[in-house]
């Protein structure tokens, strides 16, 4: 694995629910020792100060959600460098593609809640990035199923995600994460039963 720090990008819109996707992207960034860009846009006609304030507030709130639901002993979120990237002017999909052209990143994580991005812009986004993970909708655990551990939840979502053009060493990188081994072991045990 290259020693250069990987960069992940998570596009979001505060008009769509994104806290679950943010939490997953945070956890992936931690496990890959990568930094995380948080990308969004505001309309050119909006009050810039007010809109950016709302975005920063929302990102802080998203992090609170992460701390409440996903932070655990293994995950030290302060080790993840996060950077907000707020572009004024255009539509999220267009601005994202243009941003990726100028600022290449290793992996883009797309939440299926941002339908404008994943329905029509996927081909270009895949082309302009090192790889894409398209997260499927989060499935709340049913009342009859035991609540998954936080690590299980992370890998369950990865298993259900659509992966495009990911670097060959992606799973090697994640393989350095010991919790993967434990997860696979449990998964295999479940299959045997």
């Amino acid at each position: 694995m290259s020693s250069v720090k990987k960069v992940l990008l998570y596009p979001f819109s505060i008009d769509c629910p994104y806290f679950e996707g943010y939490a997953w992207a945070m956890e992936l960034a931690f496990r890959m020792r990568a930094s995380l860009q948080l990308f969004t846009t505001i309309s050119a006609t909006q009050n810039v100060k007010g809109s950016t304030d709302s975005i920063y507030h929302s990102l802080l709130e998203a992090h609170g959600h992460f701390l409440q639901h996903y932070q655990h002993e293994e995950i030290k979120s302060h080790e993840v460098k996060r950077e907000a990237c707020i572009i004024q002017g255009g539509e999220l999909k267009e601005e994202l593609i243009s941003h990726l052209k100028k600022n290449p990143v290793d992996i883009v994580i797309i939440d299926s809640s941002i339908s404008t991005v994943h329905t029509s812009g996927m081909r270009e986004i895949v082309m302009e990035s090192g790889g894409v993970i398209l997260l499927s909708e989060d499935q709340p655990s049913g009342a009859d199923k035991p609540h998954p551990s936080r690590t299980d939840h992370f890998y369950d979502r990865l298993r259900r995600a659509d992966l495009y053009k990911l670097p060959e060493n992606f799973f090697d990188t994640l393989g350095n994460d010991h919790s993967l081994f434990n997860y696979l072991r449990k998964f295999i045990q479940r299959k045997r039963i």
Partner: peptide
């Protein structure tokens, strides 16, 4: 979560 939300 509650305490964090009160102050962020």
């Amino acid at each position: 979560g509650e305490l964090y939300n009160r102050y962020y």
